[in-house]
Design a binder for these strands. Structure first.
Length: 318
RNA sequence: CCCGCCUUAGCUCAAUUUGGCAGAGCAUCGGACUGUAGAUCCGAGGGUUGCUGGUUCAAGUCCGGCAGGCGGGACCA
């Protein structure tokens, strides 16, 4: 792969790269490193999968991929006891491999290095240069608490910044909700004399209820190992306003999960509704926007394709 | 450490002055209507009233203790 096509494949489907120029520099390194951190979660869903797919793109473009299983971060965000969290991080690792990351992906449990003295010292160092307001603001879409803020909320983003340092990463990937923490990292790492990573942000997929973000806490997700009946039921029950493409979770799924695998798809329709359709994405989008594709027909097709695409994943996880 | 206010359904809050069957809105679930979902209409479920001891025929309500949250004060040689 030449550099231009590497950039293209990395850029595809992202909302922003900060900065693209720096990315071209990093790509020329012998083995550049890309990283993402996840709070271990009982369910890995399509929202997670978007970012995992991006890590796979990076892997294919020659990046060494590191996945942080951020057990301490999850702990700071009140996801359970450290022991419970460590246990589900094993399950998560399996999910990520099932989605197609290669065996030489490096999985790192956060607590393995985040309790070391030199790590802690760096956290304190950054605690001096980070304002409480910035730290809290960066956590707005991540924390459970919109009020009664805990000190943990301020430690969390600082640790994430130090992670980038200790994992020695060239590129940091995250959904758009990570943006403010990433920007904090870029500002503060340079302040204490280190290179900040390039930040790549992927879109957030809408929840099945139409909420801004699919999340495991809100029960508005489709898990990557949901059985076919559940997928069918969840798709059927999803928010899907006719003619509206923006904020439509079903359109999100077709865009990010189905057309990433297929150039064109077949939408089966009863004869009385016009018969089958064969469409590429832009055709589908414009037809839908014009009201010439009924939400139910779209949903039926999305169920069928999504069940098929997730088949091997489901099987791998067992 | 001291003082004040607060804690009731998943969430926001009622249940006053004067103790008398714990309610509403939102959310959830189910039906109706749409060839989906949503919206709308109808219906249902949902509670150790923070915990604990007491007073009383009867306590969400009154009294004591504890816990948590919010605000203030004090201490600062």
């Amino acid at each position: 792969m030449d550099i231009a096509s590497k950039i293209d494949s990395i850029k595809k489907g992202t909302l922003e790269i900060v900065t693209e120029y720096e990315l071209t520099e990093k790509i020329e390194k012998e083995t550049p490193t890309a990283y993402i951190g996840y709070e271990p979660s009982g369910k890995i869903h399509l929202g997670h999968a978007i970012t995992v797919k991006k890590m796979i793109d990076l892997q294919k473009a020659g990046f060494k991929v590191k996945i942080l299983l951020a057990d301490l971060h999850a702990y700071l965000n009140e996801k359970g006891s450290l022991e419970e969290i460590k246990a589900i991080s094993e399950y998560n690792k399996k999910c990520f491999l099932a989605l197609g990351l290669t065996e030489d992906t490096e999985f790192i449990l956060g607590s393995r290095f985040q309790l070391d003295a030199d790590y802690t010292y760096k956290v304190y160092e950054l605690a001096l240069t980070t304002t409480l307001t910035r730290a809290k603001r960066s956590m707005a879409q991540i924390t459970r608490h919109q009020e009664d803020h805990r000190v943990a909320e301020a430690i969390y983003p600082i640790m994430q910044v130090v992670d980038m340092l200790f994992l020695d990463v060239d590129v940091s990937v995250g959904g758009m909700e990570q943006r403010k923490i990433h920007m904090l990292a870029r500002e503060n790492l340079s302040r204490i004399g280190f290179d900040a990573p390039v930040c790549i942000h992927t879109p957030l997929i809408h929840g099945t209820d139409g909420a801004e973000k699919m999340s495991s806490s809100k029960e508005n997700f489709i898990a990557i190992d949901d059985p076919p009946e559940d997928i069918k039921e969840k798709v059927k029950g999803s928010f899907c306003p006719p003619r509206r493409v923006e904020g439509n979770p079903i359109i999100d799924i077709t865009k990010y999960f189905i057309f990433s695998e297929f150039e064109t798809i077949i939408i089966e329709r009863p004869e009385k509704f016009g018969g089958d359709l064969k469409l590429n994405y832009s055709e589908l989008e414009s037809r839908y926007a014009e009201g010439k594709l009924h939400p139910l027909d779209l949903k039926n097709a999305v169920s069928k394709y999504l069940i098929e695409i997730l088949g091997p994943v489901r099987e791998y996880i067992g």
